[in-house]
Simulated scan of single mutants.
Amino acid sequence: MKYFENKTIWITGASSGIGEGLVKCLSQVKCNLIISARREEQLTRVKDDNQNTASIEVLPLDLANGPTLEDKAKTAETLFGGVDILFNNGGISQRDKVINTSMEVQRQIMEVNYFGTIALSKYLLPGMIKRGYGHHVAVTSAVGIISTPLRSGYSASKHAVHGFYDALRSEHYDDGIKVTLILPGYVNTKISYNALMGDGSKQNTLDKAQAAGLTVDQLVKRLLKSVAAQKEESYIGGFKEVFGIYMKRFFPGIFSVLVRKMAVT
């Protein structure tokens, strides 16, 4: 955890799940934390539940509200004198077939998971370049490489995130900018509860695969280890998810047959 000491770290999606787990772990380190999500009351709860509250600032934001994000990034930079590490963790998922999913839902997913995510990185980039250091951590998903049933919009948004950050890494490597893509498999969070159905309503149930996945603590420990090692990509999950990534890469035809037969919960 030494890598995170004396740094200012901004975490989105910090009101629950993986984001809250990151706050819990990093609050034990001598660093400054900025925590963001839509629900200010939940952010305040997360802050109060953790150590070193004097070094935690609450900054509510909505990733879907693009016009507000430049000002949010400017505010984040003023809180502790510049952001060193950005954990782009906020996002929404999906659980419905392509034919049933409205274009409004497809756009909503892309607005939050892609445009909202990359906006924060773009707005922080000038300050990071000026200081000669910055680390962008995008918590994406295994479906950023493979795509499975009922997740067309979610998977597409994660594929887009990969394309953006791969370009960012190559363009600004000489400016001291680091990029780490974290690809979790199934993690036992409430993301499937809030996953959007085709009409925009929430699924409101916990997927069986999600329930059997890694705990947040297990994921966060491995995630932070990968970030501290400045890995470019890290696959964190059970055997099936990680195996699927390599199967897609080396045996795409076989993977295509298997994914058609997989359970969709």
Rank of each mutant, 00 (worst) to 15 (best):
E5R: 11
V137E: 06
H162P: 00
A263I: 06
V259G: 02
S201I: 07
K178E: 06
E232H: 09
D84A: 03
V143D: 08
L124F: 10
V46M: 05
E241H: 11
K231A: 05
G185E: 01
Q106R: 10
E40A: 14
R38F: 05
A167Y: 00
G19R: 11
A195N: 07
L120P: 06
I11M: 08
M1R: 07
K202A: 09
D199G: 08
H136W: 03
R39G: 00
N50K: 11
I245P: 01
K30F: 01
Q51E: 15
T12V: 09
T265Y: 12
I92N: 01
L86H: 01
G176W: 02
T189S: 07
T265K: 14
S157R: 11
N32V: 01
A14T: 07
Y173R: 13
G200H: 06
G90T: 05
G198Q: 02
I34L: 10
D84H: 05
S157Q: 05
G17Y: 11
G176I: 08
M262T: 14
K2I: 12
F250K: 12
T140P: 06
V161D: 05
A211N: 09
F250R: 11
A229N: 10
D175N: 12
W10Y: 02
H162M: 14
K74M: 03
S55Q: 14
D174A: 14
P149E: 05
I34N: 01
R39L: 00
F243S: 15
L125F: 04
A228C: 05
V29K: 13
V143P: 04
A142H: 08
H159V: 08
R249D: 04
S201T: 15
R169K: 14
A160M: 11
G198L: 09
N100D: 15
T44F: 02
N100P: 00
G90I: 08
I34C: 04
S152Q: 12
A209E: 13
E20K: 15
S15P: 10
L33C: 02
E70H: 13
L196M: 12
G132W: 10
T117P: 01
S155M: 02
T68L: 08
D71L: 13
M128P: 06
L196A: 02
H162N: 15
D62M: 04
I118V: 15
E57C: 10
G198T: 04
S170R: 15
D49E: 15
A212K: 15
T68M: 02
H136L: 11
K190R: 13
D207Y: 14
V139H: 12
V259M: 07
A212H: 09
F4D: 03
R131T: 03
V58Q: 02
